[in-house]
Design a protein around this nucleic acid. Structure first.
Lengths: 352, 352
DNA sequence: GTCCCGTCGGGAACCGGTTGGCGTTCTCAG
DNA sequence: CTGAGAACGCCAACCGGTTCCCGACGGGAC
């Protein structure tokens, strides 16, 4: 009883073959359904498969060159609403295209990101999608460029989704949204309401998403011939606690401002609570705006004016272009639009 | 030039061997690092690996019986905050234990869930984690039981995380939280504030998570000798829109209530907005409570009283027990505690 | 100068599938 | 009754690794 493998246990194609009284090739062909097989043999094979509850080993198929391709996406933290929406888009589109999705949270740790990408190369993933902003240093470009080459030469592809593009020539697909433009439009809207001292609750310096929004903030001011007080540019991270803390500190420091633009809806949520706690009315005493248009933005009180970003679509596009399906496959750099969603948290300055 | 494979392209272990002037076995051994290999040979192999940018094919390793195990988790929608937190816990713990994580969103589609699980069996995943509530029908138990057997006989394991357990005997690991108990405590708190007509914004009938919370609602009433008006039990789903709609309808129908308990923080958020839109103050005119304690609950205005559920820990435990690590590996059924978080959205009936 | 043992490396079988090529059998026309 | 051609099924090679087993070589002890 060398390998009877009985009823239980992972049975192999040979077990099935033996039970059906045919060769392994025949079993394979019955299952594949391409090659002609006599009805009698097919029946016996099918029955054996059912009785043994046999499922072909996907890894072995993969080695043999058939089988479900895999797609990987790595993000900082699935818990962030915008990440979650991108992830959802990626996963849904991948599934639609018959791919499996591997995830990895890096918690912002570059080393973990690197390790995971290396694993994905070993897995022969069809594509690796890097999601979300990052520090755009020369080192980042160099490192990411190497990864892109490495992946490309292994027949895979690197996709940057809402992440700083590399120089031209790198074998990379980039899907971005108009990050700076959204911030520009939003801040322009705030300024149009008469606000002149607009506090900006930013993210980590040199984090591209944060910086893009900050650039939009500055550009909107300059377009009106205004030069914002540098003291109004605060830095933290993209969490609600950061927004809460930043506002408390600004208030404690006696900083003057009539409006707050947060780099993120999450940050705005924390900021809103801090303002409330300080007895400040929004938008009566101070106006507030966010960025991302997460579903919750509507349920803050007042409903948050923010910038809508098509996160889910971003994810879908990322996998579609990566896999070369769809007409956008030709393009290697896509830019999706954003737009301001006006709700109730921004009012005219000095307004009643 | 049969398979020179040049600089580019997925190089095989044989390519490396050829370039280093050794056999494939030696390359394998150098990379594995177990077997003694002369310094000279090792050096040549390492250099060849570097020059070819070689990474061993993880799928082939898997077939040969070594290599990174995989773990799968399937949930309804990664976009829901509580799901996202469980997912995060699962992924982080899996990574810590050296596993890869495959995800699948089912959007509540049972067929998709089934398909995915079958794929996971083919992938020889170490464990499949089913996350989130489901309709607990006899058919569900039967089907899930079959899956559990099937997975078990393939050396894998099914884990139900916050999902209805099966009968005893099924080869399943169950990680739950005290769903009903949390609702009981929450509603008891509301009743203790003097409220007698408490509207319950539930989920789909026969969805276990929703029903568990509903049971808690009822039990808390009965413990006080109260029998709630059946008209106060509303059903929808777990989205913010559902909460919004339900409140609007209840108000339009002239339903009387002094407090609202929502089955979910998301639902509570929608309900809160609907109440505000109707000119009702919270908690002045009506009290409101949620369930899940998602980070945003603090930033609603008023800050939401809710039930804290250790979602991330739930995810971590799921993989730990599934993989048989840790002391809890022996247990096959774990129940995590929940607790009420009192904030500002529930006030005494009749006001101060 | 042998003998022996330890170190090192290669050949080959194996993991669990797929598939090309070829021989066998069946069928039907001539 | 025979020969051609189609239908069918098995053998063996292959995918890309790992590892058992054994032979070769070199050095130290006697």
């Amino acid at each position: 009883m060398t390998r009877k493998s009985e009823a239980a246990g992972r049975s192999t194609i040979r077990d099935v073959a033996a039970r059906a009284g045919v060769s392994a090739s025949t079993v394979s062909r019955v299952l594949a359904g391409d090659y002609p097989v006599s009805a009698a043999a097919r029946g016996r094979v099918l029955r054996a498969v059912r009785e043994l509850d046999y499922v072909a080993d996907a890894r072995a198929k993969a080695v043999a060159g058939v089988g479900t391709p895999t797609l990987a996406f790595v993000l900082e933290d699935i818990t962030g609403p915008s990440f979650a929406h991108m992830a959802h888009g990626v996963e849904r589109e991948a599934a639609r295209l018959g791919h499996l999705s591997l995830v990895c949270s890096t918690d912002g740790d570059v080393r973990r990101e690197l390790e995971f990408i290396e694993m994905m190369r070993a897995q022969r993933a069809a594509a690796v999608i890097l999601v979300g902003g990052a520090a755009d240093t020369p080192e980042y470009r160099e490192r990411t460029g190497r990864i892109a080459d490495s992946l490309a030469s292994a027949g895979s592809r690197l996709v940057l989704c809402g992440r700083p593009p590399l120089g031209p020539g790198a074998p990379v697909t980039v899907i971005e949204y108009d990050n700076e433009g959204g911030a520009y439009a939003l801040v322009a809207h705030v300024l149009a309401q008469g606000h002149r001292r607009v506090l900006f609750l930013g993210g980590k310096p040199d984090h591209t998403t944060a910086m893009g929004r900050e650039r939009g903030y500055l550009a909107a001011h300059r377009a009106r011939g205004l030069e914002p007080d540098p003291a109004l540019l605060l830095h933290g991270d993209f969490t609600r606690d950061s927004g809460h803390r930043l506002i408390r500190r600004a208030l404690a420091a006696g900083l003057e401002f009539s409006a707050v633009v947060a780099a993120t809806d999450m940050v705005a949520a924390g900021a809103l609570t801090a303002l409330h706690e300080a007895g400040l009315g929004v938008p009566g005493d101070v106006s507030l705006a966010g960025y991302d248009d997460i579903p919750f933005a509507r349920d803050l009180h007042p409903a948050l004016t923010t910038v809508h970003v098509p996160y889910e679509e971003l994810g879908r596009l990322a996998v579609r272009t990566a896999l070369g399906h769809g007409e956008e496959s030709a393009a290697e750099h896509l830019l999706l639009g954003t737009h301001v969603v006006v709700r109730d948290s921004v009012a005219a300055h000095g307004g009643h």
